[in-house]
Amino acid sequence: MKITTAITKGVLVVKLSGEFDMHGAECFRETVDEYLNNMGIKDVVVDLEEVVFIDSSGIGVILGRYKKIMHLKGTICLVGVQDSVKKILELSGVLKILKIYSSEFEAVSCL
């Protein structure tokens, strides 16, 4: 899985591409935690538009960041979720606590 990051209006935008499994989860955690721990970031947008697969490892690591960000009194949300990925997210129950926005612009504006 490929990960790219950008900071827009103080919000960390993490764009993921490929398959979000246990292997990608480790890279995602290290990348996001670096910003949360050392760069004063507390709001995160996770762009899943180019993610074609997710399993419970991917969901678990997003949920782990959610807990951490709640502790920092920040916000985390998702953008551009494909139908096959959305089905897995729905089944896991995480969409009860994570909001999906249609675009990065909308997400950053709403945080």
């Binding site: 399993d55 419970s56 490892s57 969901i59 678990g60 949920l63 782990g64 897995i88 089944l91 896991s92």
Partner: peptide, 17 residues
């Protein structure tokens, strides 16, 4: 059930579903 707080314990639930 999960032995790791970073994981959801959904592995077997997904397999079953």
């Amino acid at each position: 059930y999960s032995s790791d707080p970073e994981r959801m314990g959904l592995g077997f639930a997904f397999m079953e579903s």
